[in-house]
Every structure is written in C-alpha cells, then in structure tokens.
C-alpha cells in the first residue's frame, strides 16, 4: 500500500501518472513477428527480434533510472453520496426460526428400524404384482436379483418367474442394504423437513427417485426397464417411504449439537461453558438472531 507514496511529488492541482508509451506494443509486435517467422520465413523472425530488442530497450528507458510520469491536472471536491433509500429496515427473525435446523434428530437405531419396516412393507405390493401379473412369487425377486445382468443375460419369462437361489441371495442383500441405508437417510433428513415430514419423505421423495430411475433406466439397463411395471413400482416405493417415515417419526428424538454453544461445537477447550450457559438460560439461537443484520 505504499505505491502512492512512491510516485514523485506533483505540483498542487496535478497528479503524476505513468506516461503513455508505445514500447510494450513494439515488444509485443516483435514477438508476434518472431512467431510468424516460424511459420513463414526466418527473415520475419529476424525483423521481429530486432523489434523485440528495441521494444525491450525502450521499455527499460521508460523506467530506468526513473519511471517516466506525466502530470495530469485535477480538481478535488467533496462528493456527497446520497441514497434514494433513506430508511434502513431490518429483517426480523423470530426465536423459533432456527428450529428448522435439525435441533433434534432420530437416533441411528430409529433410522435402521424405519428402513427395516419400510423394506418389509414394500415387499407386499412388489410380490402382489408378481402374483397377479405372472402368478409367480419370484418375479420381483429375480428382477432385483440380477435378471438381465452379468451371467444371466436375456432370461426367458419362465426363468424369471421361477425360484433361483443366487437371485434370492443377491436380491436379499441388495434389498436389505438399500432399505437400511435409505432408512438411515430418512432418520437424518426428516427432521430438516419443516412440515409434513411423512408426506414429504413418504410420498414426494419416492416419487422423485422413481422419476429419476424411470428417466435413466432405459440407458442403464434396458432389459430391466422393459420388465418393470412402473405403476406397481411407484406403489411399492411409496409403501416403503410412508412406513419408513412413519416409524422414524414415531421414535424418540435426541438433541443434536446445535444445542451446544459454538465454542463447544468447534471443539475448543471451554471448561464450564455448557453448565454456565444452562444456568443462565442462554440459548445460542437467540444470540445469533440478535446480531444478524
């Protein structure tokens, strides 16, 4: 921040600025000709070299032994900035505003329970579809368990509707893992949905991921795309979502770290801070709300 002081003293009413110069252009043009000579003729490169050296020397002459400046006249006067908006208003945030953050959350086990319950619930419509449409208990199991992929490409309908142990094992693993993971996800995200958590988590979320799957499955696995009945698929997903959401929402919630003071949340050593704050009845939420602008 000392550059202004380094400029030479100018008479009153004038300011010293770097003087215009053509030498940078001469240098750049010289380099251009050097490059142009590469694709045309060495003579052009030679001319470019002469120009570039001249430009460099001229540039040095501009700054050594002293930087060349020119004087520009000026007139200082007071600028009085005015705003068309005279009033300053504040955005008021009520004390409950941060309640939309997950200040409480279901425990990990609640998510797992929800996932298990949802996983069981979605088996019902999926199996029902197989029984009604193909008179087979195993249709949905075999589709999930690998029909159309790896070493079981292009299976016949008879194969898909009959029991196959490897497909059952694969489907069970996939179904259990996905159910538990999505259940955990519900446990983490449902407290963030401010209203109607079961509706949003149970209905809209399954519709959303079904839509994504419907749009992309023809690219990922065209065989599966042809074999899935999307109405029944949506019904089974909603069954999962509603049941998992309901189970998670009914479980006892635990407090998140949002209840703790900031210093404690970032891991600073603050002995006694939590106890003191409880005694004073202070809440981090109201503090930050007051300071927000």
């Amino acid at each position: 921040m000392s550059s202004h002081e380094e400029r030479p003293e100018a008479p009153d009413g004038f300011v010293a600025l770097p003087a215009p110069t053509a030498w940078p252009l001469v240098l750049a043009f010289g380099l251009l000709l050097i490059f142009l000579g590469v694709v045309t003729s060495a003579a052009i490169s030679l001319l470019g070299l002469v120009l570039a050296v001249s430009g460099g020397i001229g540039w040095f002459g501009e700054v050594l032994p002293q930087e060349r400046h020119e004087l520009i006249s000026m007139e200082a006067h007071e600028f009085a900035p005015k705003s068309t908006y005279r009033a300053v208003s504040r955005i008021h945030i009520d004390a409950q505003h941060r309640a939309h953050l997950p200040v409480t959350t279901p425990s990990v086990t609640a998510g797992l329970k929800g996932g298990v319950a949802g996983g069981i619930a979605m088996i019902v419509p999926a199996t029902l579809y197989g029984l009604i449409a193909f008179h087979s208990f195993w249709y949905a199991v075999n589709l999930l368990g690998g029909a159309g992929v790896a070493d079981w490409t292009n299976p016949t309908m008879a194969q898909i509707t009959h029991f196959r142990l490897s497909a059952l094992v694969t489907a069970a693993v996939i179904h259990a893992a996905l159910s538990l993971l999505v259940g955990l996800l519900y446990g983490a995200t449902l407290p963030m949905l401010p209203r109607h958590p079961i509706l949003l988590g149970g209905l809209f979320a399954p519709l959303l991921w079904t839509g994504v799957l419907h749009a992309s499955l023809s690219l990922i696995n065209p065989f599966l795309d042809q074999k899935i009945h999307w109405v029944w698929f949506v019904v089974s997903q909603i069954a999962f979502g509603m049941v998992a959401g309901w189970v998670v929402a009914k479980q006892a919630h635990i407090r998140t770290q949002q209840y703790l003071p900031f210093a404690a949340r970032v891991g600073l050593e603050t002995p006694g801070l939590i106890a003191e704050r409880h005694q004073e009845g202070l809440d981090q939420r109201t503090e930050s709300g007051e300071e927000g602008r």
């Binding site: 009413g13 520009i72 006249s73 000026m74 007139e75 200082a76 006067h77 007071e78 600028f79 900035p81």
Partner: peptide, 10 residues
C-alpha cells in the same frame, strides 16, 4: 469520509 474528485477539463 471519502473525498473524491472531478477532472479539470483543460
């Protein structure tokens, strides 16, 4: 405070 300027049109 923020004093600013206007050029003299010489």
């Amino acid at each position: 405070t923020l004093p600013v300027d206007r050029p003299m049109e010489l």
